[in-house]
């Protein structure tokens, strides 16, 4: 259970970053930390003690493999995480070009 709790603490650290930082790059970093902790949690659920990596081998008798299903889903999620991070960074650089700062407090003044 300890690892699950550590993983949750990592998620909370990312959430803290998203909530308290004023710099948009730091907010993107906080989002990716939250993503990482979710990936780690899902990969840990499928782990089996003394299990093998899910790649089939002929000569073994009654091998125990770790669960391949969460791994496949996390593989999908990692690539989607890359896409969302790229989109967030594109929005950040666009805002920087318009306002000249990464500070989110300066962005709330709407300009036409």
């Amino acid at each position: 259970m300890t690892v699950y709790i550590m993983c949750f603490i990592l998620f909370l650290v990312g959430l803290y970053g998203v909530l308290t930082r004023r710099n948009m790059i730091k907010i993107v970093i906080g989002f990716s930390i939250m993503e990482f902790s979710c990936f780690l949690f899902l990969a840990m659920i499928g782990y089996i003690e003394n299990g093998l990596a899910p790649i089939l081998k002929e000569e073994m008798e009654n091998p125990v493999y770790v669960d391949p299903l969460p791994q496949a889903m996390v593989l999908t999620a990692i690539v989607i995480g890359l896409a969302t991070t790229a989109l967030l960074l594109a929005i950040a650089i666009r805002i920087y070009k318009k306002y000249g700062t990464f500070d989110i407090r300066k962005v709330n003044e709407l300009k036409g």
């Binding site: 990936f39 840990m44 782990y47 990596a53 770790v66 791994q71 996390v74 593989l75 990692i78 690539v79």
Partner: peptide
């Protein structure tokens, strides 16, 4: 955690 595919993809990403 015995997930080599995830490790490779995560390094690239």
């Amino acid at each position: 955690l015995r997930a080599p595919d995830l490790a490779i993809v995560q390094i690239v990403v």
